[in-house]
């Protein structure tokens, strides 16, 4: 009983983290038509920056949430630079853009190894979110529940941004038909930069708040990128609802798979993605993939 309910909470928590990671990935894919292979690296970079600030930089330890904010802004700016100066000039050549993101991800991974070394950094949970919530005989870690709440808040905020604001309307127009959006006078290229920065920032934020659960280590990027990929393939590109549902499904499959079938955990994880790619290439909620 305890085992199962804990596993369930862990699955939802992980799903929440995945949502923060994959929402940006999905929007970037929807708008720019490329899988951003730096997304795992941005998550890891955010986690390292956050962990370093919380753990104490030049003797000064920063508040968890300030660290999260700083990491988000730094990585978002980094994302904007990547889009503006490296991907922009390859516009229209999607293969080159994918390879570019791959090249950058290799550089970021090695950069992190250079700066932070090979040992994992442990990140403590924010003090006010330590401890447990008791429900009868069960006890849930408060921090994990907090992540679920944070993910819900972000989901609502993203939905509001996309559905209720002018910027969101322009992004949706770009996802539907970039050519048409350009014709009606939307500056699609600036939209690319904004969405890329937004996605990068979300990934970094997910990295920081995921830090205390996952810990921060070299290879975190390689672990997270495929998960973002699976979520988006499952849910469909450019679809927020798709990312949300896909993240939850993968959160459950990942945690239950690890617990019950550790040897085949990855196989079980990627199987639904493969099935969707083969049977419904546009994903569960998405439109036709290019």
């Amino acid at each position: 009983m305890t085992f199962w309910s804990l596993l369930t909470v862990n699955s939802i928590t992980f799903g929440g983290l995945l949502f923060l990671l994959s929402a940006g990935f999905s929007l970037i894919f929807g708008l720019m038509r490329i899988p951003n292979l730096t997304h795992g690296s941005l998550f890891m970079l955010g986690a390292y920056v956050g962990a370093t600030m919380v753990g104490g930089l030049i003797g000064i330890s920063t508040d968890f949430w300030i660290a999260a904010l700083v990491a988000t802004i730094v990585v978002a700016a980094f994302g904007a630079v990547i889009e503006r100066f490296l991907l922009r000039q390859l516009l229209g050549n999607e293969r080159a853009q994918v390879l570019m993101t791959l090249g950058i991800s290799l550089m970021v991974a090695d950069f992190c190894l250079m700066v932070w070394g090979g040992d994992p950094l442990n990140m403590s949970t924010p003090a006010h979110l330590g401890g447990f919530v008791r429900a009868g005989p069960l006890a849930f870690p408060l921090y994990r529940l907090a992540i679920i709440v944070i993910a819900m808040i972000f989901a609502a905020a993203l939905w509001y941004l996309l559905d209720r604001t002018r910027l969101g309307a322009m992004i949706r127009a770009g996802v539907d038909d970039a050519e048409m959006a350009r014709v009606v006078g939307i500056r699609v290229s600036r939209l690319f930069t904004i969405v890329f920065a937004l996605g990068a920032g979300l990934a970094a934020f997910a990295g920081v708040i995921g830090g205390p659960i996952l810990s921060v280590y070299p290879g975190l990027d390689q672990d997270m990128l495929p998960l973002a990929l699976v979520v988006v393939i499952l849910g469909g590109t450019g679809s927020l609802l798709g990312s949300f549902v896909g993240s939850l499904i993968i959160g459950f499959i990942y945690n239950f798979g690890q617990a019950l079938l550790p040897e085949l955990a990855y196989f079980v994880l990627f199987l639904p993605m493969l099935l969707v790619l083969i049977l419904r290439p546009q994903g569960l909620f998405g439109r036709q993939m290019p």
């Binding site: 999607e94 293969r95 990929l229 990855y266 196989f267 990627f270 993605m273 493969l274 790619l277 290019p290």
Partner: peptide
């Protein structure tokens, strides 16, 4: 195109995981 890249990437990850 991109779809092919993604499927081969996914297959590669599955095999790596295995």
């Amino acid at each position: 195109g991109i779809g092919f890249i993604m499927i081969t990437l996914a297959l590669g990850e599955i095999l790596w995981g295995l």
